[in-house]
Design a protein around this nucleic acid. Structure first.
Lengths: 200, 200
DNA sequence: GTCTATAAGTCGATAGAC
DNA sequence: GTCTATCGACTTATAGAC
């Protein structure tokens, strides 16, 4: 029986996960070191390994936490709702996720870029099943003439790409825009884009 | 005076650069090792370092070669051409780049994700200047009523995001689509998307 | 040009004192 | 729970034989 976590344990675990998110999201799994994470968490390396048994364990905990929240916005797409409004709302939720959780977005991007060795089976099963389900909903809307006829898979990919871009390529976006804030303009642009695309 | 490169030198340099592209594009600079690259190139590690003086040198050579080609498709956007046709052609060129040079796209994505430490000044100067110039062209088209009024910066970002997504997130796209080929559907989707968005 | 051997440093992880 | 010390493997790069 493990005892309930003390305040110190909770604080240190949270500090390690936040530090791990900082480092892993920037350098990927192999490019990150425990020294960096321990330093960012304000702990010694052996002390860090007292809380998580290995580098893998920290990374796995972060991916678990991420995947739980990552599919939610698409899950919430409601087949009973107004088609255009539902898709616009989905894009808006994903954009908010990029704005509020950019490190999580980059952690995911790094994992995919490296060939998704730790989550490929989840992508092939859970993600594929969810996308297939929602693509069928969107296809149904198109068949019923409620939205313009578009390939539902590429529509979903486009929402992923357009929203995650602002988190994953943040450095490039800021290099081009300078001081101007990206997300207000992005929200307006995406709203217009999908409104025009989807209106039958 | 260095002698002109022999056939063997050219072949080995090319093999090293191709192997480096394979590895760096997947694991990023820090996550890649010379052992991996030497192995992929079919050379011993000391022999690899006979051709390139350091790990950094291989990576720098790859980034140089990449950046030269990377801005070309936008450069070719012609202010004198037909507005909608020019933008559609740009998107098409970028999608072809993702299809034909996915490793280069992922090398760039890795560099940006890691904070662009080696190319940030290029982004802030050359890239920004080019985007500013072409954004002004697009803004002029919008002001003249030749295309719908859209934010030209977010329009350009959207083309980057939508095309590079198919190279950078290739694993995820294939996990969802299964056997179906991504690029034919993507081309049709993007053509319709930008046609509808830009038509005044 | 290509190899073996190795230097010099960093990596993840453990031992054991407190 | 947290520390210092350290192990053994790995990593970049060099030396020197062939």
């Amino acid at each position: 029986m493990t005892k309930p976590a003390t305040r110190i344990q909770k604080r240190n675990q949270a500090a390690i996960l936040s530090a791990g998110l900082d480092i892993f999201s920037q350098y990927g799994f192999r490019g990150s070191t425990l020294d960096q994470i321990a330093d960012a968490a304000g702990l010694s390396k052996p002390n860090l390994l007292y809380y998580f048994s290995s580098k893998e364990a920290i990374h796995a905990a972060l991916l678990d936490r991420l995947l739980a929240d990552w599919l939610d916005p698409l899950q919430a797409l409601d087949a009973q709702g107004d088609p255009v409004r539902e898709i616009l709302a989905y894009a808006k939720r994903k954009l908010a996720l990029s704005k509020d959780y950019p490190r999580e977005s980059r952690l995911f991007a790094n994992e995919i870029l490296q060939g998704a060795p730790r989550i490929e089976s989840i992508l092939r099963h859970d993600l594929k099943a969810l996308v297939d389900e929602k693509a069928a909903v969107i296809q149904g809307w198109a068949d019923a003439g409620k939205i313009a006829p578009v390939d539902p898979y590429h529509l979903i990919f486009s929402i992923w790409a357009l929203t995650q871009h602002y988190a994953d390529f943040d450095v490039q976006v800021r290099a081009v825009l300078g001081d101007r804030a990206p997300y207000d303009g992005a929200a307006v642009f995406l709203d217009m884009l999908y409104r025009k695309l989807l209106t039958p």
